[in-house]
Design a binder for these strands. Structure first.
Lengths: 195, 195
DNA sequence: CGTCTATTTGAATGTACTCAAAAGCGGTGG
DNA sequence: CCACCGCTTTTGAGTACATTCAAATAGACG
């Protein structure tokens, strides 16, 4: 009963058996070792990937050379530089695996073909974007209205499995604080038995 | 040659004259005075509004009672609490006019009818969400990687007309800083003749 | 013209950062 | 299997960015 790409679609829309096979005929399964770059800023994002196994980070390097994690992607979600993929222009972000990953990929061309052939997929994609936007709007709000410690709580809520899977450095970067400061937040909590 | 809702659609998709009239037959034009609440947190967002004239803010009140502006909407853009509108559940945000506004509205029901009748509108909506998500992703990145002064520059880029139209208090809230600090940033710039 | 709100200015404070150094941990090769 | 190397995490001191509070000034609106 593990997740897979067809179940994922059928959570939102209803596919016929034929449509399911058509999709699977175009999907390519690829495995990546931990710490592999999928996309670098400026390159064109040629595929959209369903994460079957593993986790990744989407990040950007600022004017001072600091890496900033924008978000993480894990099992049963999609990873892509949306703007780059849609417009086939230079990517805004870097994408890197944080674990060994198994990704189920569709090239831009195959993706377009499927959206043309299976009209209901427009709805699936729309709902996907919709949910991503809703979550992104919340994120903006948290970033202005919450202090670092409360943003850390939100992170734990949103990615409950991730804390033990990735380094604190990456979590700090996602939260927008220094690794040192996250470390001191955590030690403060332990001393207070997480009140 | 001013913008209007039909031109807006035709920037993304191609509508027939019949489709255009069908849309216009369901659109309701409404005028709101400055400082009118369109939606309060917890209420159901019953309409999606195209901004023909005016500007609005989307904000949230945090646990300490402070208003936080999440973003602004102005001419030729849409305003809605997306999650509330789509699911017809309680809104996450407050929406308030900052000027006298003319909004062209579609109720949830009419919106659904149009999306069913005019399939190409699914694409329009998808592109709308796509662009909103892209811009929202950038915003998250700016909030972690830029200092207040640079975020202020990004604000001026994104909303070039807005600085003279709304109060500094609202801009400060959008930037995630106190009005006092924005004031001191601006006076610092004037002393340095905006280097 | 008066009232209410917004903006400015300055002082004291707090939150989070930088830098540096030490300790911990994980993977790799001998 | 252990020792070593490199990277991550911890800890602490000093600093910078931004806040809060208070009071004075300026602007907007009826």
């Amino acid at each position: 009963m593990q997740h897979n790409i067809i179940q994922h679609f059928n959570n939102i829309i209803n596919l016929t058996k034929e449509e399911e096979s058509r999709i699977l005929s175009l999907v390519k399964v690829r495995r990546y070792k931990k710490k592999t770059m999928l996309i670098e800023e400026g390159a064109v994002c040629r595929a959209i990937s369903y994460v079957f196994k593993g986790c990744l980070r989407i990040y950007k390097i600022d004017s001072e050379g600091i890496e900033n994690n924008v978000y993480f992607t894990l099992e049963d979600w999609w990873v892509v530089d949306l703007k780059s993929f849609i417009e086939q222009t230079g990517a805004r972000f870097y994408i890197e695996t944080l674990e060994d990953c198994e990704l189920w990929q569709l090239t831009k061309n195959d993706f377009d073909v499927l959206l043309d052939e299976i009209l209901i997929l427009e709805k699936w994609f729309r709902v996907l974007l919709q949910n991503a936007l809703i979550s992104s709007e919340n994120r903006i709000h948290y970033k202005t209205s919450l202090k670092a410690e409360d943003r850390y709580d939100k992170f734990l809520e949103k990615y409950p499995t991730l804390e033990s899977r990735i380094s604190q450095r990456h979590i700090a970067s996602y939260l927008g604080i220094s690794p040192e400061f996250l470390s001191s937040l955590k030690s403060k909590r332990h001393k207070q038995q997480k009140p």
